[in-house]
Design a protein around this nucleic acid. Structure first.
Lengths: 331, 331
DNA sequence: GTGAAAGCGCTAACAG
DNA sequence: CTGTTAGCGCTTTCAC
């Protein structure tokens, strides 16, 4: 691989002159520049980005840390972050946090291979984030409540979302409502559940312990949790699934048992994934402002990179998407 | 940010000793090592990955080049590549090729910020790929027919897929079949269409020019192409959509016009996206061996990185997924 | 305008 | 076992 040294030699100029010519600095004469460019072309010279980053102590790229590159992701969220990065002339790369303590994500965070990061990966420990963030390395955390030096928090108000969803069910006349939980240690799940509890409590309703099932936020889990509920004999009139994936699985379970939605059981989800509108019946759910959240995260990161100081936490509201999986009941 | 120099100074040892201690080299005494580690801890020292990469002239990471980080992607494919990378102790990062000639992807390719790449982005020009690939920088291209030095090709046989799909329709008794095309310049589309033509030709069938519509591989395009077909008055008994997205859009158009699938019109897609199984009716389609393709791509990349020579092109077969959108017809 | 030289932070001979 | 030293490839003062 040809280096700038080779180019300089072939062009018969000094190393620095070659560098200036290549980067288009105006102080090099057109004639010299042409000579250098020609030499570069003939050697098929490509600058080494790593050397440049090292010298500049800046990579001009930020990382998006995801649990798993293979998704499924909030593409709107990613797109909005990407747009902001591009607008600031920075590159965005995605890395996965799969693989525990030596995941790609952790390597990029600790070894400062980028200028900053947006984290969307619950499996990276708080302390790693806290110690990685620094003066020259801002981090935005989006999937949990965590703030610190050079580490700011952009959240969607899951508690409010859980509350709204539950309230919607209650307003539709439902009194016996089950919440199918995601992973118990998931921040998102906890928030949604908290909102559920608050709404139930305010209306003087209580949840049946036997309906406290968990589906791990995955479709299969929603399916089996629902199956278990069905086998237990007594059904609620409505079930609030901690996310849409589980709701889709749950609806399948009801269908398999000939239980009709929303006639016999109403269902509400959370997230508004693409599938939600295509489910049968289309799933009523809670939509998160993903683009706004991503955009905000991006902008904050660049403000921090520019040395501006920003608030340490932002919480965005949600919105209910009414479709056809909830039925109004008379009493 | 503390450097290894600071650590060495604080620990009262030479630079190299600190380096050895930090990397766990056995030749440093336990006592010295402890001293160094302690110094590193107290300074909150983190090695600079960029400096290391430069020194080593190797990054131990490979890039996955995608058109757009916000997907939608073949998550199975990505996952399988990821698994292979992990198994080889390498990191995988994803970069987007959005932004033309100065996209993140091109920067990573040209400036050799990684050790190799898997490309799944039709918007990166052939010549960039050709000139970026090199002795120490293998590239696997998966979305077009392109081979070259240190550049190998992993493809799924779209022609065969198009042939199978069409043949399936013909075997089910269909004689008037339309092909709704993706972008005319798309390699995938061309292959599928070629397969369609071959099957039609073999059975002595011909396509009606007025059914030659394009939907650009997007849902909305499938919708409007279908609408146009409906407005033209005469309907085929079966339509083969160049991909599932368009098929989903097309089914919506038929539904909007009260045309029942598969009773009045049969529909077949291509890809087997997640939605396909959830469409109404569930969509019969052609499934690509995504995991196998990804896995193969990953393995080939590492073989090349290890200096082994490999064939320059691989073409994988496809499989038909029978669901409920195609009806058998009697004659 | 152009060139010589000093590093960015790290690793890896090599010598002691 | 520990320390000295020479770079990896590039940018950027600072003289000329």
């Amino acid at each position: 691989m040809a280096t700038i040294k080779d180019v300089a030699k072939l062009a018969g100029v000094a190393l620095s002159t070659a560098s200036y010519a290549l980067s288009g600095d105006s102080k090099v004469s057109p004639k010299t520049r042409a000579k250098v460019l020609e030499a570069a072309r003939s050697l098929n010279y490509r600058k080494n980005g790593i050397a440049m980053d090292l010298k500049r102590s800046r990579t001009n790229t930020i990382a998006l840390i995801l649990t798993d590159l293979s998704g499924p992701y909030y593409s709107e969220l990613i797109r909005s972050i990407q747009d902001v990065a591009l607008a600031h002339g920075h590159d965005l790369i995605a890395c996965s946090s799969m693989g525990e303590r030596d995941s790609t994500a952790i390597k990029f965070l600790r070894e400062k291979r980028v200028d900053g990061a947006v984290v969307l990966a619950h499996n990276i420990a708080d302390d790693i984030l806290l110690e990685s963030a620094g003066e020259r390395f801002p981090i935005i955390v989006m999937d949990r409540e965590l703030t610190g030096d050079h580490l700011v928090n952009v959240l969607v108000d899951g508690e409010q979302g859980g509350y709204r969803a539950t309230q919607y069910l209650i307003e539709a006349g439902h009194r016996s409502i089950a919440y199918i939980s995601g992973p118990l240690n998931s921040y998102d799940n906890q928030q949604r559940y908290k909102g559920f509890q608050r709404a139930m409590h305010e209306s003087g309703l209580s949840e049946k312990p036997k309906w406290r099932l968990s589906g791990g936020f995955v479709r299969e889990g929603g399916y089996s949790a629902t199956k278990m509920m069905i086998m237990q004999g007594e059904l609620p009139t409505a079930v609030f699934y901690g996310n849409d994936e589980m709701a889709v699985g749950g609806m399948k379970a009801f269908e398999d048992h000939g239980i009709s939605i929303p006639d016999e059981v109403s269902v509400i989800g959370f997230d508004d994934i693409e599938l939600a509108g295509y489910a049968n019946p289309p799933l009523t759910t809670v939509r998160q402002p993903k683009s706004e959240a991503g955009s905000l995260a991006g902008h904050l990161l660049f403000q921090m990179l520019d040395g501006e100081s920003v608030d340490e936490q932002f919480k965005l509201g949600i919105e209910l998407v009414e479709r056809k999986s909830v039925r109004k009941r008379e009493h």
